[in-house]
């Protein structure tokens, strides 16, 4: 199915908004879940899976909201397990592979910093249900960003090896950050209705926070470069299909399975 942005049911765009937020949380939660049992130290293994669990819980709340507003009888499980790649609205950053710990850490830091700012704004949404989920999620996201920012400093201002890995991760991941601030018709409709902030309005605050942490981490924001785009329109990177295959296989092999 072609994935035009605003075909979703509700005219106020809440379905689209909730899908984007839910898919970001779901896909990043799935990625972090891959670390379970493989973390570099026990505390980090536990932290990564805790963050994954928070994100999975947030994904449920957002996708359940999307399903209710869509009004076609789909619940959060239907949306998570029975949509195909082109219907997923997450940004490309969250589907990038875990790589080494520098990749995982930096991906998380870029996302968490943006997530906190977005959720803080959404907690003041004129849509009461959007505000309630965001208000709940932002307290969790505040914990997430403290951890990921701490590790950016530790690895960036660490050993020659950890620093080199952070620099390499930065070159790989920076081109995925532009998409976080892209705007389309759905965003403008949501902003005009006071339901969500314009993504672009979050950029200056995000960049200032990244610069603050990078200064401590002895890292530098790369010179402006070409940015990847497409996730929010359902055009994903080659990594997404493998992730979905693993995440959805059980539910598709045994529809309706419970335990």
């Amino acid at each position: 199915m072609p994935s035009s942005t605003c075909e979703a049911g509700a005219p106020d765009g809440v379905v689209e908004l909730a899908l984007r937020l839910g898919d970001n949380a779901l896909i990043l939660g799935q990625r972090l879940g891959e670390w379970a049992g493989h973390g570099p130290v026990l505390e980090e293994d536990i932290a990564l899976t805790n963050v994954a669990l928070d994100l999975l819980g947030q994904a449920r709340l957002w996708l359940a909201l999307a399903g209710r507003r869509e009004g076609q009888g789909r619940d959060e499980d239907d949306l998570a397990y029975f949509r195909d790649q082109a219907a997923f609205r997450n940004c490309l950053l969250v589907e990038q592979p875990n790589g080494d710990y520098a990749d995982t850490t930096l991906r998380q830091f870029f996302f968490d910093t943006w997530h906190v700012a977005l959720l803080n704004a959404l907690a003041r949404s004129r849509d009461a249900e959007v505000a309630a989920v965001a208000d709940k999620a932002r307290a969790e996201a505040a914990y997430h960003v403290r951890r990921s920012a701490g590790w950016v400093v530790r690895l960036g201002d660490g050993t020659a090896e950890s620093r080199a890995r952070m620099v390499a991760a930065l070159a790989r991941l920076w081109p995925f950050t532009g998409e976080l601030f892209e705007e389309d018709e759905a965003d403008r409709t949501l902003a005009a209705a006071g339901i969500a902030p314009l993504p672009g309005s979050l950029r200056a605050g995000w960049q200032a926070e990244v610069e603050r942490v990078f200064a401590e981490a002895t890292l530098e924001i790369p010179a402006s470069c070409w940015m990847h785009s497409g996730g929010r329109r359902g055009v994903h990177t080659e990594h997404m299909g493998y992730l979905l295959a693993e995440m959805q296989s059980l539910a598709r092999a045994h529809p309706g399975a419970t335990w």
Partner: peptide
């Protein structure tokens, strides 16, 4: 502080 994440979502170490 050892970690802000512990054995359940509500606890740290």
């Amino acid at each position: 502080l050892v970690s802000e994440f512990g054995s359940t979502p509500c606890k740290g170490l």
